[in-house]
Design a protein around this nucleic acid. Structure first.
Lengths: 186, 186
DNA sequence: CGATACATGTAAGAAGTTACATGATTGT
DNA sequence: ACAATCATGTAACTTCTTACATGTATCG
């Protein structure tokens, strides 16, 4: 029904809690100790986001009063939460998403395991590859435009962008091969 | 005097207006048509940011009523604005800045031309290189940690991060060579 | 004559940051 | 004893997003 639209942090939370029901503090540790470190681990971001998701009916909380002194509030996905996650996982990457929020496409890929079929994953990556190469064409054109100008730093900074997206394009092919090999292995 | 701290957008505005005094609409066009596209070109972001900077005394506006129908408000830096920009340009990259806001270090480099000496620029880039390589070590360690686990997608996503930072480390050496060659050319 | 570019802004709401607040447990 | 870790949350503030509002000039 309702076109749920969430922030990257909220989708990250849904994905993590779908992998394993957790407390806010568990999530904080993930953000502190893994390459998901670009998400803020501040309680002022995490706890309100969990609360919002619960209020929207995407998460449910159970009190864990077993061993600990202070009760842990353990969150897991509801049916609606799983559906919102799935809808997001099925979204293709747009150029806007790639440029504005460079890490969302990779987050979505990382959290897609077990929720998309190998074919769907390959299609997602192929779409990502197309968007990356299309954006690269724009950067190449821009490099031509600034070829003559005297300023060195902007040209070098552009070169960094180009190399970064070229690396991503190469990774896409690598990842597709990895997915296919993994699928064939069954 | 007072420790001015601004958002990336505000520093981008200071840097652009220092290169050439411009109106809000000029800036919008830059964000729409150059690789600075990761900044929002929405008027709801740009005009209030310009207003804030003017209120803080970092920008001054002059009305351009010459030719156009509607007057353009052209902003340029005050002395305090130039000082705030310089202080920011002298900041070294921290791991936190690199990981949380991946594009700020490159923005700072791009806007530093003419404000830092070649030696200072090389020192900045060497610092960036050290931070990137240090973070790469953490990613390599994490890759070892997850080597055994069954999940494929997170390992592949990590590989993308590693490749991206490796590309950046390579670019740093390339850029340092470029800066040195440019300096020697005088 | 209609669409697009020029040009500037505001209002409401959502979300994140920093700092504060609390208190038990575990390690040194 | 003291620090660090576990664990959860709130309050004030800042900023960004989306949408609205207004009007001219130019191009086809």
């Amino acid at each position: 029904m309702g076109e749920v639209v969430l922030t990257p942090l909220e989708y990250a939370l849904l994905g993590l809690l779908e992998m394993a029901p957790s407390s806010g503090y568990d999530v904080k540790k993930v953000f502190d100790n893994t390459p998901l470190a670009h998400f803020s681990s501040s309680p002022g971001a995490i706890y309100p986001a969990l609360k919002r998701l619960a209020k929207k009916g995407l998460l449910e909380a159970t009190l864990d009063t077993t061993t600990e002194a202070r009760p842990r509030r353990v969150f897991s996905l509801t049916g609606a939460g799983r559906q919102a996650l799935l809808e997001w996982l099925h979204q293709q990457v747009s150029e806007d998403e790639l440029v504005r929020d460079g890490r969302s496409p990779m987050l979505r890929f990382a959290l897609a395991e077990g929720h998309l079929s190998p074919d769907e994953v390959v299609a997602y990556l192929e779409g990502l590859g197309r968007v990356v190469r299309a954006y690269l064409q724009k950067l190449y054109a821009h490099r031509e435009d600034v070829k003559g100008i005297e300023q060195l730093h902007p040209r070098l900074a552009l070169e960094d962008g180009i190399r970064g997206y070229e690396a991503m394009a190469g990774w896409v092919d690598f990842a597709i091969a990895g997915i296919k090999a993994h699928g064939a292995r069954d």
